[in-house]
Design a binder for these strands. Structure first.
Lengths: 330, 330
DNA sequence: TTGTAAGCGTTATCAC
DNA sequence: GTGATAACGCTTACAA
């Protein structure tokens, strides 16, 4: 690999001048500039990023932490972030936490070791107190997650409103026995707390009390959805509708429903979350809460870059609206 | 950030000894080792990777180039590679080429600039001649792509067999008018050439000649699938079955079919490719060609690491079998 | 077993 | 406008 010294030799100018050309400094004579450019071209020279990083430059790399890339919500999010970053000249270091605390910390270390200028976290496994110290080494932006006590910028969707709208829609359709799947544990301060509130609030307004046996916790995948359907079938008092935490779970429910001859929405109405491409492909089409993934991804990158350019920027929270998409499953 | 000199100061030993501890050198007295370990702990020290890279160490980073992460085939592939890499202590630099030649080259430069030890390419946009020079700087492994003249290790699936099996299955079901969607241009040496051969071969064996107006090129997405369905509806002589290049296209076809009252498989049999989760969720369930994504991802990482550990290793090609999954759409 | 010192490729500082 | 030089944090001969 050609390095800066090779360029120096070939061009006949000093190392500093070469560096200046590389970094587009204003006051260089055209003559020398040409010389350097030509040499760089000839040698097929590319500056060594490790050296630049070591020297304390920006790394032009941002890390993005996702729990599971195979979840379409996150793959679309990563897609949006990567595109926005690339346009601004940033590389994307992709980190999959697999919902593992240790792994998350490993990735946060990228910041400490100056391998990434900043990090976008789309999920949070550790407590804020654990994450907080890392903010000393560079900006962190939460995208899709919200931690009220955290002092970082956050881009989020109105999860409360999403759940509220969805459940209210079911109530308007005449349902009163509404089950609820959540990726969390249905605790007041834990994961998915806002959705929980939305669910509870909508029921409350309709004078319905929550039936704990219809609250199904820690559900994530298609397989989980299938299992949930079986659980429902075994209940003596069955719900007539289910609000699921994702289109994937909803899809799992629908597969199992079909197997067991349960008609949707006749026997059971189902509502998803995300509006992934599959929502439209399912039969019947899945009523769901659309999350504007592209927008939050883009916004997250924008905000991160702002923080990078202005370290004194005060963290802010941005909330984007979600939308109820009514199809045939409700 | 604490650096090695801080550790030196706190522990009272020399820089080299600290370095030796970091790198697990064998012959160090337990006494000093303890001292160093304690200091590292106390300072919350993490070695600076940029410095290590600059010094010529392995970067413990591998790059993985995908065309589009939102395609589930690739998100599952990335997932498998990332997991395998993490286990071996490698970070994954995620690169999305968006099927753009320039962008692909930008990413290959990671190798030149020693930001990545090696690269896994899951798609190839540039000609081999353009890519070839980059192999000087580190191993490249093709995963899912095959270029006969390329001198790199390749992990691939038997695409010929996949297409052949699928089309043969349609023929056995009594179809003779079989349309074909491809992501490429149906050329003898271009993209998807093996699948093209499989399609042609299966027809040939049944004494059927290819009808060019049923060959639909450059199809990739759900939207493409919807368009294809409309195209088919406008044909005077309609095919009775379609072999698609991916489950996404098949899904698009099915959405549009439903809209237009076309019965599947009655009016039109559809066969997908990949066996993505959605294949099972579609109604009717999608007959498709299963690609063992996890396996090829894992294998690709294994092979890359072998090359990394043994630079003289002769490139080899590994071919994994695909499988016909029969559901209700054929 | 341990320490000293050179060097990886850059860029920032200072002098000219 | 240009050039010499030090420094970033680390590893590795070489010496002791």
């Amino acid at each position: 690999m050609a390095n800066i010294s090779d360029v120096v030799r070939l061009s006949g100018v000093s190392k500093s001048t070469v560096s200046r050309v590389i970094n587009n400094y204003p006051h260089i004579s055209n003559e020398k500039k040409e010389l350097v450019l030509k040499a760089m071209e000839e040698l097929n020279y590319t500056p060594n990023l490790s050296a630049r990083r070591l020297r304390g430059q920006a790394t032009t790399t941002i890390g993005i932490i996702v729990p599971r890339i195979v979840n379409p919500f996150f793959s679309y999010l990563v897609d949006a972030i990567e595109k926005a970053g690339y346009q601004q000249g940033y590389q994307t270091l992709f980190c999959q936490s697999n919902e593992d605390k240790e792994k998350e910390l490993t990735f946060l270390n990228l910041l400490k070791t100056k391998q990434a200028d900043g990090i976008i976290m789309t999920s949070i496994e550790n407590d804020w107190e654990v994450i907080k110290p890392y903010t000393e080494h560079g900006p962190i932006v939460f995208c899709n997650e919200y931690v009220s006590e955290a002092n970082v910028s956050m881009i989020r969707l109105d999860q409360y409103q999403g759940a509220y709208m969805g459940v209210k829609h079911l109530i308007e359709r005449g349902h009163r026995k509404i089950a609820y799947c959540t990726g969390g544990l249905f605790t007041e301060f834990g994961k998915d707390k806002d959705r929980n509130r939305g669910y509870q609030r909508a029921l409350e307004e309709a004078g319905i009390t929550v039936n704990p046996s219809w609250v199904l916790v820690n559900q994530h995948t298609i397989e989980d959805g299938k299992r949930v359907m079986k659980q429902i079938l075994e209940m003596n008092d069955r719900p007539t509708a289910v609000f699921t935490g994702s289109d994937e779970i909803a899809g799992g429910l629908m597969i199992a429903a079909k197997e067991h001859g349960i008609s949707i929405p006749g026997d059971l109405a189902i509502i998803g979350f995300d509006d992934q491409p599959v929502a439209e492909m399912l039969d019947p089409g899945l009523t769901t809460i659309r999350q504007p993934v592209d927008q939050i991804g883009k916004k997250a990158m924008e905000v991160l870059v702002e923080h990078l350019n202005n370290p004194d920027l005060v963290p802010a929270t941005y909330e984007l609206p979600v939308e109820l998409i009514i199809r045939k499953s409700t």
